[in-house]
Design a protein around this nucleic acid. Sequence first.
RNA 1: GGAGAGAUGGCAGAGCGGUUUAAUGCGGCGGUCUUGAAAACCGUUGUACCGAAAGGUACCCGGGGUUCGAAUCCCUGUCUCUCCGCCA
Length: 425
Amino acid sequence: MLQIQVLRDQKERVILGLKKKHFQDAEVIVDKLVALDDDRKSIQRNLNDIQADSNKLAAEIGQLIKNGLKEEAEVVKQKVATLKIELKNLEDALKQKEVELETLLITLPNLPHESVPVGKTPEENEVYKMSNIAIPDLGENPLPHWDLAKKYNIFDLELGVKITGAGFPLYRGKGAKLQRALINFFLDEAHAAGYEEIIPPLMVNEDSARGTGNLPDKEAQMYHVTKDDLYLIPTAEVPITNIFRGDILDEKVLPIKMTGYTPCFRREAGSYGAHVRGLNRVHQFDKIEIVQFAHPKDSYDIQLKMLEHVEGILIKLGLPYRILRLCGGDMSFSSALTFDFEVFSAAQKRWLEVSSVSNFESFQSNRMQTKFRDENKKVQLIHTLNGSALALARIVASIIENYQCEEGIKIPEVLQKYTGFDILN
RNA sequence: GGAGAGAUGGCAGAGCGGUUUAAUGCGGCGGUCUUGAAAACCGUUGUACCGAAAGGUACCCGGGGUUCGAAUCCCUGUCUCUCCGCCA
């Protein structure tokens, strides 16, 4: 959520930013918000004054009663009674105004960083970097990963359908082992980069979902356990980022770096077609997430370091990748700057998104009220960042496609100590 | 799931209708003393909002209520602890 003060102080910048994100009627809504805030202030001023009067009179009554002046006290009580009616009205008006303000403010997306390219669709994303890893030559008829899965019994989507439903893959045998190898490899990489490992809850309450912006914006994306009013996490970002919800941190502890492996659950309502085939888009997948809580002055440097971290993993896995800087129209609601990593899945001949590294600046921390005390002892909002390092299902898809050969599927060297085998067949 | 107890400032812990703008201790910060440090002593130490400032208002788990006045009384929700039951 944006801060109302920013709308007041930097109106032009806000409107331009909203437009870059293709937010409709930016001027009108910003004006309306400022007007609502003006109303709020004036009501509050009024309310505070009357409360002050009322408090004084109450103290007076206390004194009068203490001194045995009962009749005089009664007179003052009458005065307070009229104030009380007014107070009640003002309190209601204030609350209503605050709700109105927040309901509208929460609909505003984060402002894009100045480096965000103008554009509306994924085609307008900027290719920030292309890897120099060669796309493998797979010969005549390379198999897509769903066919390889059948051939080598790596995972089974039909069984997933039987047990649960579409989009819940079941990994087996060496496929399951490969999955586990990747999880351990990614966690070890994150640990080596200084991230503390977290095993968070896989369900979160409403406050947490709201804190990271998954509610109300992306409610349809999450599985909701209505009986207990909990949400299955769509990413470890949600529980991990919420660790510091409502806290004021010491500047000295920044940046805080955390990583976590979790399964991720996404409803992906309305998805269909060839591009969601196999592991390309599923309802449950494994992901290792890296999260940082940063001083505002450092957050963009930190984002670049996170990019390097993800890049390093892809290089070790030998997967051809490219990094995109997302345009205003393709970025997520809460992000100020997002880089996507895509790997080339050589049999499908498609780029698959396997990581998204975002800087949210203070957009999440404003909702979560996560702050830090700066060198002048002033309290200010922290910056939050996160990225996938990495998302499993699609990495598996591209590994098995890109490493297929006559004898089976070669295992990238860095993974062999985790899998315990060098070929999957 | 059953029974009981509880939720107060960074922590510990008092307060149970009117100098509480929350005692006291610990911790933090600043200072005195000291070559330096420790100890001792003195001061200071929450957040949000309104206000140019002075200052004001709100917040003692959340929500509602009683009262001129609520941390304190009532209702309700949530959570925690203890005991019992069940259980990986």
